[in-house]
Amino acid sequence: MSMPDFQLLRPTTAADAVAMRAANAASRYVAGGTDLLPNIRRGLVEASVIIDLGNIAELTHIEFGSDALHIGAGTRLATIAGDAAIRSRFAALAQAAEAVAGPTHRAAATLGGNLCLDTRCVYYNQSEFWRESNDYCMKLKGEGCRVAKKSKRCYAAFSGDVAPALIALDAEIEILGPNGSRRIAIADFYRDDGMAWLTLAPDELLTGVHIPLCDGWTTAYEKVRVRGAIDFPLAGIAVALKRKGDTLEELRIACTGVSSRPLAVEGLDELKGKPLDAAALAIIVAQTEIAAGAMRTTLVEVLYRRGVAPVLARRITERLWNAAA
């Protein structure tokens, strides 16, 4: 299938990009292009104007501040995964960036692109012929959700790897709009809706993330996937914990691939100030089960994805706890 016609704009500042977006209602941003360009070609996304963010130098910084790490949204995933300081001080972030697709994708794909990744579903990421034959679905051109037939909402799954790591690291997101910039907690960047999974307004641009320094913490990200080298997560878990002697001082767990947004596992506060014993691990498993309500959006069994997320959470937490001893 050939590429539909569009006009290509190549701004050199974030402010210009936002102005171009505001001036063209049917425009879309493209950064690395690894998600958007195949989707345009498959007819999943329509745009008469494409705004290429690849020429904006101000969006590609990695800066260690006095209290936080600042990363521009245009920074390539390969750069983040290969940065020695990020690998040692923000392991979950480096591991998540490295877990995205294959090396040729990571060389092009950006932090911002991965955070804004379109939600995925076995009924959506298909050719036009396939979707038409199946009478489409509510995410594009059709009615109803094929995954949950009686549902009024779309259950396409968010499958970005970096977002859960940033939730576990308690990061904030910087957004630039026509009226200036604003900062929000990363969890507030997402919505539990496969069709409108971002709270980003159409005229806004994600420009960067701020991650509080976390020296004294240990963090990690892991995912399960069909092919270990390249696939999207069937389930992905990020864990950040702080151990003090024999007690757990802080614990944050976040998951991806198992709902329409990446989300923090709730109900872990009661574990603070106690050792990580069998009872604590049982609570981690139970709470992650609640968060990981995967639906039938992949060819892999739902029960496997719902079951493997808690196991990953338990294993990673136990490993980090022992490593921090």
């Binding site: 493209v30 690894t34 360009l37 195949p38 040729t104």
Partner: peptide
């Protein structure tokens, strides 16, 4: 190495 199919 980059993918020519996903690059403008």
């Amino acid at each position: 190495p980059r993918l020519a199919c996903s690059t403008l």
